[in-house]
Amino acid sequence: MEFKCRIHEKIREGEELNEVDKRNLKEVIKRMFNFFVEHNIVPVPRNYAKWFFVFCYIVENNIEATTEQIIDIYYKIFKEAKIDLRLSNEIERILTEVRHTVYEYLETVEKYDKKIEKHEKTLEDYSRQEEISILKDILKEVSELRKVNQELIAKLQEKQKETERLKKELDALKKQAFIDYLTGLKNRRSIQKALEDYFKDYKNYGYPFSVIMMDLNNFKEINDEYGHLVGDCILKGIGEILRKYLRAKDAIGRYGGDEFLIILPGVKLEDAVNIARRLKTVIQNHTFYCEDKELKVSASFGILEVNENFNSPEEILKEVDKKLYEAKKNPDHIAY
Rank of each mutant, 00 (worst) to 15 (best):
I11C: 03
R12V: 04
G14T: 04
N18L: 01
E19S: 12
K26D: 03
E27D: 08
K30T: 06
M32V: 04
F35T: 05
I41C: 03
P43A: 05
P45M: 09
N47G: 07
V54F: 04
Y57A: 04
Q69L: 06
Y75Q: 07
F78R: 03
I83A: 03
N89I: 08
I91R: 07
E92N: 13
V98G: 00
K111Q: 06
K118N: 08
K118W: 10
T122A: 13
L123A: 04
R128W: 14
E130H: 11
S133Y: 15
L139P: 00
V142G: 00
K147N: 09
Q150K: 14
D171A: 14
L173G: 01
K174H: 07
K174S: 01
A177C: 05
G184P: 10
R189V: 14
D197C: 13
D201Q: 11
Y205M: 10
Y207Q: 07
F209V: 15
D215L: 06
F219W: 13
N223W: 06
D224N: 11
H228G: 09
G231L: 10
D232V: 09
C233I: 07
Y255G: 11
G256V: 10
G256C: 06
E259I: 15
A272C: 05
V273N: 01
A276P: 09
A276N: 00
A276V: 11
K280F: 15
I283H: 02
D292A: 10
K296A: 01
V297K: 04
G302W: 12
N307Q: 08
E308R: 09
E315T: 13
L317G: 05
K323G: 04
H333D: 00
